[in-house]
């Protein structure tokens, strides 16, 4: 074996090793969190709000955080869809090249903005408007966080739709809006769905942006102006408590969060394959 082959074998070995390590770490994270947390899950954890002394080891659950997180994530997903979908459509057909690349760049930058900055900025605005930490504030800040993710993901799938389809639709007399809504969107439907679920997953897992804006409470929010608890912050705050048996509840909260996120990604995969049937190839 000459030096070249030795070098080849050496680097190939390194590559396989690093791939195995990276995949191994993923499994290690999932395994540790699931194994530690799953035995601690109980029905009361899922169905009750914290009772008095919950943070000192007394009974109750984290229903407040589960409901709060779902309110926040669904609210923000809905709002950002309303904003993201028109932007993605606009970028396809109406925007001139220059303007489109400017919008794309600006959204890409927004995608990279740390979520703590969204949180700080959002809270500053809320103070200016005289709002306290509340569900609405959390939803709005999460919307800002999800918007670039959802828009860019939708934009990318819509760009993949062949131009001929649009032209065919113009040829039979449709307006640009009709072509976009009835042809392009329908073609890109599986991808649009993936974009929505991707943003949902990001939103429900984010903690730093809602730390100040949504607050934390032991109660289930009844209006948009009540503070709302959330799962990521439940993990964070429970871990920060002094008693080990209360800290363990954080593991269970993390399992609930992981299960929601993993099932979102599985659902997204399943629906994508199912809906792809309707796409003209």
């Amino acid at each position: 074996m000459d030096r070249r082959q030795l070098e080849e074998a050496f680097f190939k070995g390194l590559m396989i090793a690093s791939t195995v390590i990276i995949v191994g770490i993923l499994f290690a994270i999932l395994a540790v969190v699931l194994l530690k947390g799953a035995p601690l899950l109980s029905l009361s954890m899922l169905t009750q709000t914290p009772k008095g002394g919950y943070y000192l080891g007394k009974g109750g659950g984290i229903l407040n955080a589960i409901i709060g997180s779902l309110y926040l994530a669904f609210g923000a997903t809905f709002l950002s869809f309303i904003i993201a979908f028109p932007i993605a459509l606009y970028l396809q057909e109406y925007a001139r090249n220059r303007f489109a690349s400017f919008v794309r760049l600006s959204l890409d930058i927004l995608w990279g903005v740390p979520s703590i900055v969204y949180g700080a900025f959002g809270f500053t605005i809320m103070l200016y408007l005289g709002l306290r930490a509340c569900l609405l504030g959390g939803i709005i800040v999460l919307t800002l966080l999800m918007l670039p993710i959802m828009t860019r993901a939708m934009d990318e799938v819509m760009r993949m739709v062949p131009h001929e389809l649009r032209e065919t639709s113009y040829a039979v007399g449709s307006t640009r809006l009709e072509a976009l809504l009835r042809v392009v969107s329908r073609q890109a439907l599986p991808g649009i769905l993936t974009a929505v679920l991707l943003a949902f997953g990001r939103g429900i897992g984010d903690a730093a942006s809602i730390l100040f804006t949504a607050g934390y409470t032991d109660h289930i929010p009844h209006s948009l102006f009540d503070p709302a608890a959330s799962l990521p912050l439940a993990v964070f705050f429970l871990l920060g408590t002094p008693l080990p048996e209360v800290q363990e509840r954080a593991y269970a909260a993390a399992v609930i969060l992981l299960v929601i996120i993993l099932s979102t990604s599985v659902i997204s995969r399943l629906l994508t394959t199912k809906w792809t049937k309707f796409v003209i190839k």
Binding site: I29, V33, L198, G201, R202, I204, G205, D206, A207, A208, P232, L233, V235, F236, L239, A250, Y251, A254, L257, L258, I261, L262, T264, S265
Partner: peptide, 9 residues
């Protein structure tokens, strides 16, 4: 897709 608090945990 794993949330950052889970990484922290």
């Amino acid at each position: 897709g794993i949330p950052s608090v889970v990484y922290g945990l």
